[in-house]
């Protein structure tokens, strides 16, 4: 729970108020990733809370333990997906989608009386997989570090008199305040100790 909810802190009376919202720093892929992260939370909690019902609905009665483990996996992938390190979470989700599809494949067999449910679930997972891949590619593209390495700032010294001529320039007239002085500390005593 955010600290602000616990403390009841609120914005002050006279501070400027938002009158009209403008464009956001969040990109489309960021928003899609966030939605997928919350979807992971929901599905993960459902798989942890009711693995038996899900297993029976899909005709995977002997896979209750596996579905519970998948619930934990969904929650684990939700954490990075909802963080600023979205690509890690989305990559984990894509891997998880593959596991889900592999687990559902045997349930599509004619012998399974719940194969229609399993088919719907497989179609949903396939659709979600496409969204995960789109979000992963989108987020990677939106936040890649383009062109930075090519920049060379070796002409930006910030020292108009040159680096060599500037060394110690401030020493002549900068009065270091007493509470910032380094001399007289153990730093000076160490070299004086017998070796």
């Amino acid at each position: 729970m955010p600290l602000t909810n616990v403390t009841g802190v609120a914005r002050s009376e006279g501070d400027p108020r938002v009158q009209r919202k403008g464009p956001s720093s969040l990109t489309g892929p960021d928003r899609l990733a966030r939605a997928l992260g919350w979807f992971s939370v929901g599905l993960g909690l459902a798989e942890l809370a009711a693995p038996g019902r899900l297993a029976r609905a899909l005709g995977l009665d002997d896979k209750e333990g596996l579905i519970r483990a998948y619930g934990a996996r969904e929650l684990a992938s939700a954490v990075p997906t909802l963080s600023i390190d979205k690509p890690i979470g989305l990559a984990a989700r894509i891997g998880g989608d593959a596991l889900d599809l592999a687990t559902l494949a045997p349930a599509l067999h004619r012998d399974n009386p719940k194969r229609h449910n399993a088919a719907i679930a497989a179609a949903l997972v396939a659709g979600i997989t496409l969204l995960d891949i789109a979000a992963f590619k989108g987020v990677k593209a939106a936040h890649r570090r383009d062109g930075g390495a090519a920049r060379d700032y070796s002409d930006r010294s910030g020292l108009p008199r040159g680096a060599a001529a500037s060394r110690g320039l401030a020493r002549k007239d900068f009065d270091i305040p007493p509470d910032y002085r380094a001399e007289g500390t153990v730093a000076d005593a160490i070299p004086a100790l017998p070796s």
């Binding site: 390495a149 090519a150 070796s154 500037s166 110690g168 401030a170």
Partner: peptide, 25 residues
């Protein structure tokens, strides 16, 4: 540098930022 340090050592991993640090010596 202005305070007269003999060696200033800059640590990073981005080439453009390291080039800016090197520009000051």
């Amino acid at each position: 540098i202005l305070l007269g340090a003999e060696q200033v050592i800059a640590i990073d991993h981005l080439p453009e930022r390291l080039s800016m640090a090197a520009a000051a010596g």
